[in-house]
Each structure stands twice: as structure tokens, then as C-alpha cells.
Design a protein around this nucleic acid. Structure first.
Lengths: 211, 211
DNA sequence: AATAATTTGTGAAAAATATCACGACATTTT
DNA sequence: AAAATGTCGTGATATTTTTCACAAATTATT
């Protein structure tokens, strides 16, 4: 489980850096400076250098960073060589959109199975992903440890409990409910209404000219 | 534009508090302590008290907070009496899901128009929201200042520029592109692939037992 | 009416994060 | 080969955010 000295704020930016390095690499770029990367990912260049420095000296003074080297480094740091399987729970509008969302396909994470309570959906495939009945979690989850939760808010707690019982320890929660889990389970919340409301709040109450 | 003394971290939690206070009110609860609210929204009770304290003394010692009073206070602070209109740009899978996403309907924010480049979609209604052609931004935006961006990544920069030219100053960006905007425009990024990847990273590299 | 139990609001401390600014070194130019 | 330029890595500093912990006030209990 190596050194967990890396700040959480840094860890959250790693996948972003990785994606942009990939872009640069595909464009055939050989070197990149923290300043260039900064303009691409919209993160201050000093923050980028600091972030990278937690992993040691990855760059070269007066030169910048070698794209290929950095990419290889992040590939192993982010475990990009191994595939992580993820289950989608709740194949409604939002869930279905994720299944069809191609950005999810270009990385090391795959949604490999979906669950829903609607018997019209059960047994079908959505974009190549089989849909099982929510009561089949037990048989079909097969060791999957990460779930995307896109069920109605009213079902969130009951289904979360089932997921946790079946061994899920990471949940990306898109419901507006704040789900309760034992503390060996990690939940990240993405609350679409809150995001929109806080954006509007910032627009109204914060000065507009300097970000 | 009142006192912008409120920390950003606090401002981001306000819509969350508001929603849960609404729930409590509908359940007929008359009072609530920071501890109870903490359990519901999963934010430390001291943080909640601190957050509230930026607005003055809203509670009563030994009693807690009066739900109805607090709700009224937040209603005006969050401008919940006035409706903010939002445009959805890109009516693909994800965009369509938002149009049908009912949680967006129970608050002061309304998606009132959508734009897409697909002529099959233009002219139709999705869940009561009219879809216009992306080239009609000029005529149809009609002063809407906030946009949800759910177009393909490759289109993100071009369309952002159009939106900004038409007066949009708040963008909720769901594309994996980090869009470039003048600094009077505020962008919040929600990057689904990054969220999933960072969740997986945390699961692998951070101790599981204390959150 | 006195005592016990709650719960706020906040000063102070701690922790986390971001930014400044510069020495050291590598590269590029002249 | 010398000078000019570019860029990292990081100590130090600043800023932001969270948490502790407790006096003061209110409510509940006996």
C-alpha cells in the first residue's frame, strides 16, 4: 500500500495529469514544462511541480519533463496496467448515459455489469453491458468492489447496504442522498443539483473578475 | 454583492444544508441540532456550526436550530425565491439524462432550453424542454447566463467560445476538456472519468479503516 | 428551585493546501 | 566557450479549511 504521504488534493489531480500527458504523447510531443501543462489543465504550475515532487525528481532543470517517461511513471502509479471492474447500479437515464459514455472506455476502468429493478431491462444489454436484476447482486457481482450508484434517492440506503454486504468498498454516489456506510467503505459524492446551485451561488455572490 | 467573507468551502455546502433542512421541514421536524444534521449530511458538526456562524447567530444554546427559521434564512441567502434559468448544451446521452433528471426540478434552477447540432433532435421537446440548433444560440439564449456543457470533448472549446460571446458567465462543464475562458467567466468542472479513477486510486493507496 | 444535561458560538490550534521566490542546473544561443 | 535563457525542486510563507475544547446560555429533570 506504499507511502500514503501524497496529499489527497494531489491524488485527485493525478488522473487529470495522466489524461493530458496521454494527449500530448499522442500528439507526438516529447517534452513538456510545468507551465505548458498548467495552461492545459488549468492548475497553477507551482502546484504541478509540487505534486510531481511527491514522487521524486521526475523532471530536468532547464528542460522540463519527458512526456514518455512521465507517462510511464504515472501508468504504474495509477495502476493503469491492470483493469478495475466496476458495477453500475441503477440503469435509469443517468445510468444508461454512463454505460454509453465513451470516455469511460479509454482507461483502465470498465463498467462490466449493470443492475436494475425494472424487469423490462433485466436480461438485455446496454452498449454491451449485461443488465441483471438487483436481487441477483449476490450471484453476479463476483468480487466487483466498486459501484456507481445511480438509483432513485429513495432506494439509495437500502441498496447501499446490499452492496456493502456483498463486499463493495468503493461507491461513486450520484444520488442526492448522503448514504451511510461502515468506515471501511469509501464514498465519493457527486451531487448534480448541489453543483449547479453552488455555481449559481458563486456567480451571484463572488466578484467576477479574478478567479 | 454583500460580504464575500464566506469561505468557498462553506459556500459549496450551503445547497446541501438547504436540501436537508427542507427534508426535515417536510417531515414536520421543528428543531435540529448540529449533531443531528451532521449525521444526515455527513459533515462534522463543528464544521456545520462554523459554517452557520458566518451568517450570524442562527441557533440557540441548549436547543439547536429552529428548522423553519433556518430554512427561511437559507432561502433568501441562496436566492431561492427567484428562478435561475439554465441552458443545456449538447443533448446526447448525458445531456438528455439531465433533462429527465427530476432532482433538478425541485429547486430554484430550471433547464429551460437545450441546444444540439443533430437536426433530428432540433425542433423536438425532451421532457418539455425545447431543443434548438446550436447555431441558434444567438437568438434563443435570450439572456440565459448559465450553461451545462455536455457536448463531445472535441467540440468543447469552440462551443464554449460561442457561449461566452453570447454572454454566458457560468458553465458547468461535464466534458473531459479543460476549457479556456476569460476571467469574468466561472467554470466548474465535473469530470466523471477522473472521479472514478481517483476513487479507485484512493481505494488502492489509502488505509481503509478511518476515513 | 436547584441540579443536570444539552448545545451553541468561537478563540485558538492544527492540518491541509497553495503560492512565492530563488538557487542550481541544463539547454540554447552567440 | 561564454553568456543568456529556461525550468525544476523546494524552503519558506501565506492562505484556507478543519477540528478541538470550553464558557455561556438554554432546556430538561428531579
Amino acid at each position: 500500500m506504499e507511502q500514503n504521504k501524497i496529499p489527497q488534493a494531489t491524488a485527485k489531480r493525478l488522473p487529470l495529469y495522466y489524461r493530458f500527458l496521454n494527449n500530448l504523447n499522442q500528439q507526438g510531443k516529447k517534452r513538456v514544462s510545468s507551465k505548458e501543462l498548467s495552461e492545459a489543465v488549468k492548475v497553477d504550475s507551482a502546484t504541478i511541480r509540487r505534486d510531481f515532487s511527491y514522487f521524486g525528481a521526475l523532471g530536468k532543470k532547464g528542460y522540463g519533463y519527458n512526456v514518455e517517461y512521465l507517462l510511464g511513471f504515472f501508468r504504474s502509479t495509477l495502476d493503469h496496467h491492470e483493469i478495475t471492474e466496476v458495477a453500475l447500479v441503477g440503469a435509469g437515464n443517468l445510468g444508461t448515459a454512463f454505460l454509453k459514455y465513451s470516455f469511460m472506455k479509454n482507461n483502465n476502468i470498465r463498467i462490466t455489469k449493470a443492475f436494475d429493478a425494472d424487469s423490462n431491462k433485466v436480461g438485455t444489454d446496454i452498449d454491451g453491458v449485461p443488465v441483471y436484476h438487483i436481487d441477483e447482486l449476490n450471484e453476479k457481482l463476483e468480487g466487483t468492489r466498486v459501484a456507481i450508484l445511480t438509483v432513485p434517492a429513495s432506494e439509495a440506503d437500502v441498496i447501499t447496504e446490499k452492496l456493502v454486504n456483498e463486499g463493495v468498498n468503493g461507491i461513486l454516489n450520484f444520488t442526492p442522498a448522503r448514504i451511510t456506510v461502515p468506515n471501511h467503505v469509501r464514498v465519493h459524492h457527486i451531487d448534480l443539483a448541489v453543483e449547479l446551485q453552488s455555481l449559481v451561488y458563486f456567480l451571484k455572490h463572488y466578484p467576477l473578475d479574478k478567479e
